[in-house]
Nucleic acid binder design. Structure first.
Lengths: 250, 250
DNA sequence: AACTGAGTTTTGGTTCGACCAAACTAGGGC
DNA sequence: GCCCTAGTTTGGTCGAACCAAAACTCAGTT
């Protein structure tokens, strides 16, 4: 019976732990209101009868837990956690992992995986409004073919819609994450209207497939679109990668 | 031009930031070896010419970033980050969010989404070994029908295989996460051999579909299996939820 | 009355020095 | 060679103090 991670038998709890727990519950219960500043460190040390050291440690922990936002010299601000909070918490870790090109690939592959599922779902369940949004995005896309920067923006926006169609607050958070993590690799890619045009057509293919309620076609269009986009980035990496992993074993 | 999150123009960097950056690079570069203890706080304060307070803050930050593991009274241990690290970092946040039943649902839905994709992929790309593993798991599953605890374990194991078939280190980490987060809700579910039997047959249906290389059937079997499992949990929540969201709009 | 700006108070960031208890180490007794 | 004890190292906590930036106060200007 492995216990996964919860092997935490506190041998000697830190003083800050109690404070963290208390503040945590106050935030979650709404006693400490969202967007409102935390009490000052000196107040807290009096209330909990602990040293400022411990107060600061507790606040730091809360900050890393995403329950408060603390800019260097400002009063920390209470923040009720949401899925975005998670992304922020993982941000640094992911960035470290992205030092390794293989990490980038893993991440990008996961994005393809997610979006394949999303377009399938879109093809099946997209509402009229969803489709209308896609159409708009597609046209904005088309209009921006000659403006690579703008195209990049509308490109992202087009994909984002699928994450909304997921109808789950987790997906938009994931999209935002992919954006901020994968973005840099795209930014240093040379721009070319011809490439924009190709991508526009890829988007259109996806859109058309969704219009026809054809999940397989939509997924296929999406997959080849993203595979091609990966080639465009041309991430220089020793690992020889092919994005269709059908044949790879082990 | 929204900037997502990177609006960090340090107005007043913390003293610890530099130390964190330096130690971070030492860990990533391997200068500080994985699994090996960090230098003592006193050593670090001499080397960087800072107070122990700052050293401790830096270490705390590294700990939250997942680059070191620090148990209360022990020397922090260097840890090269992997995808598991991320899960650990998000753990507390997620747990907080899971206080809200709607959060649990979102999470569970995302699991369904992921696994639908995974079984589809398995149906297309599973190797002989994969299928052999599935078969084994399935049989272990069958043998445990009368032992609810064991069945639970083999159940998890059966599903885990799909995450491995994803051929991306991200997926196993996700599976582990789902396990630790969703687990509690399943543990308090009453056990019944009849239910185990039903789940076993559901698993078999998935397995059969994969054998026949039929992604749609596999996905369908998986989806209804997990939807049913959700009902079993019978999470008491005011939100009236139906897991097939085909009709729901907005 | 609203706005501005200088002066005061508050507060977060950092240092220093000290103390304690637990972890580590070394030495001595069996 | 093993175990127990004494001494040392080290992480956890405290408290007092200082600095600079933020927040606040309030008189003075328009």
């Amino acid at each position: 019976m492995n216990k996964l991670d919860d092997a935490r038998q506190d041998p000697q709890p830190r003083a800050a732990d109690g404070v963290v727990a208390e503040l945590e519950s106050r935030i979650l219960s709404g006693l400490l209101v969202d967007k409102q500043p935390l009490p000052s460190e000196r107040e807290l040390m009096e209330e909990f009868d602990i040293s400022r050291t411990v107060v600061r440690e507790a606040i730091a922990t809360l900050s890393n837990r995403g329950l408060v936002e603390s800019k260097p010299r400002f009063r920390p601000v209470v923040r009720k956690p949401d899925f975005d909070t998670i992304i922020n918490a993982t941000d640094t870790i992911i960035r470290n992992m992205l030092a390794d090109p293989a990490g980038v690939l893993s991440l990008y592959e996961s994005r393809i995986f997610i979006e394949r599922g999303l377009v399938r779902q879109a093809a099946t369940t997209a509402t009229k409004e969803d489709i209308s949004l896609l159409k708009q995005a597609l046209e904005a896309n088309k209009d921006a073919i000659d403006d690579s920067l703008e195209f990049f923006r509308t490109d992202l926006e087009f994909h984002r819609i699928f994450y909304d169609i997921g109808r789950n607050p987790i997906f938009p958070a994931i999209h935002k994450a992919y954006g901020s993590w994968l973005w840099p690799y795209w930014e240093r890619m040379k721009r070319a209207p011809s490439r924009n045009e190709r991508n526009y057509h890829a988007h259109k293919a996806i859109y058309d497939a969704i219009l026809e309620r054809d999940p397989d076609a939509a997924e296929q269009a999406l997959a080849s679109h993203l595979a091609r986009a990966w080639e465009d980035v041309g991430l220089t990496m020793e690992v020889s990668v092919s994005l269709d992993r059908g044949a790879s074993d082990d």
